[in-house]
């Protein structure tokens, strides 16, 4: 058993190292200095208190989308729809933030909850289709992403504004912005959302590890037939898992809507928060703690990438390549396991 635990820890670490090495090779091949490149990356992510604040800000939604995908994964579901759930959550949060007038202790929780509910509802559709009709959730969630994108754009243009591409800012009583955190980090955009995200991670851990609900969800993920035979309601668990996963993603939208931007704009394409969340969940081995670490890693990589063009002349997309490669390496963990086993045998 302990060797299994070692594997689950080694695979992500090796994958990240290999991804960074591959990034260095790409920099070398395209005529850049990898040491300069990675120094710029480091400075961009942790160089001063401002960048640290921005790194935390960027990691916040990643934690939530990562949790969303990891949670669904535990029930054997692949929630590619995090992207769409983020968008509807973002829209709902901003909508409540703009349209309602209330004191902060009502307004802010209301906006956050609205985002969670919107995300949950958006995930309910693929959940119920999977549970009742056996429709594969991957395709439905992908389609739901596009429906969310186009519909949200339409609502922004037609309902929330009259033909504008950006809504007005949310009222301060719905904002997650935090003066003391900002002043600590030289006025970065870091906001209270990070505590919501970390709290969500604790909730996921608690549900999965400490409740009967979580036990059933995991059980359905391992073997639907056995769970059914043991008297669990498989359909209910599938829908529940999708809805909770969707709520996490919806909250990620709230982080952007109430924290980082304070409004929502018409989007030409996806924010990629949901797709990057897949990488986060995968690297975090679908555990709450793992997701938090992975989210900070990817948050730092993405934030640091912003410094690479000015610091070393390297296009920011290098980081996207590195992240894609890390996903490949984790997904192909079969290969890593095989190599490790080989070395072990030879060691003996």
């Amino acid at each position: 058993m302990s060797s299994n635990k070692l594997f689950t820890l080694l695979v992500p670490v090796i994958s990240v190292v290999m991804g960074l090495l591959a990034g260095a090779i790409i920099m070398l091949v395209s005529g850049f200095n990898p040491i300069e490149g990675y120094t710029a990356l480091w400075n961009g992510a942790f160089g001063d208190s401002y960048t640290v604040g921005e790194t935390i800000r960027r990691s916040t939604p990643y934690i939530l989308t990562g949790l969303s995908i990891a949670f669904a994964f535990r029930t054997g579901l692949f929630n590619i729809g995090a992207e769409g759930q983020v968008i509807v959550g973002w829209l709902a949060a901003v909508w409540v933030g703009v349209a309602i007038d209330a004191p902060m202790y009502i307004h802010l929780p209301l906006a956050v909850i609205a985002a969670g509910i919107a995300g949950g509802l958006w995930a309910f559709i693929p959940g119920i289709l999977k549970a009742k009709l056996g429709v594969h959730e991957v395709i439905v969630t992908i389609m739901m992403n596009y429906i969310a994108l186009f519909t949200t754009n339409e609502i922004i243009r037609k309902v929330l504004t009259s033909g504008q591409t950006t809504t007005e800012s949310i009222s301060p009583s719905a904002s997650l912005a935090s003066e003391w955190m900002q002043s600590m980090t030289f006025y970065s955009r870091v906001h209270y959302g990070i505590f919501i995200a970390l709290f969500a991670a604790v909730i996921m851990w608690f549900i999965i590890q400490r409740t009967t609900v979580g036990y059933e969800l995991k059980s359905v993920g391992f073997n639907q037939h056995a769970s059914n035979y043991a008297g669990m309601n498989v359909s209910k668990n599938i829908v529940l898992s999708m809805v909770i996963a969707g709520a996490f993603s919806g909250l990620a939208g709230a982080m952007e809507g109430l924290g980082t931007y304070g409004n929502i704009s018409v989007m030409a394409s996806f924010s990629n928060l949901g797709f990057d969340g897949i990488a986060v969940a995968l690297l975090g081995a679908n555990t709450a703690l793992g997701v938090v670490f992975a989210a900070f890693l990817f948050g730092a990589l993405k934030e640091g990438a912003g410094e690479m063009p000015t610091g070393a002349g390297i296009p920011t997309e290098l980081v996207d390549i590195i992240i894609a490669l890390i996903i490949f390496f984790v997904a192909s963990s079969y290969m890593i396991r095989w190599v490790i086993l080989r070395f072990k045998k030879e060691g003996k």
Binding site: F78, I80, V138, F275, I278, A279, L282, E317, L318, V319, D320, I321, I323, A324, L325, I327, F328, A331, S332
Partner: peptide
């Protein structure tokens, strides 16, 4: 599915 997602990211990145 995961590998496909990675293909999408990699192609755009490259």
């Amino acid at each position: 599915v995961v590998s496909g997602v990675a293909i999408n990211m990699l192609a755009l990145g490259v």
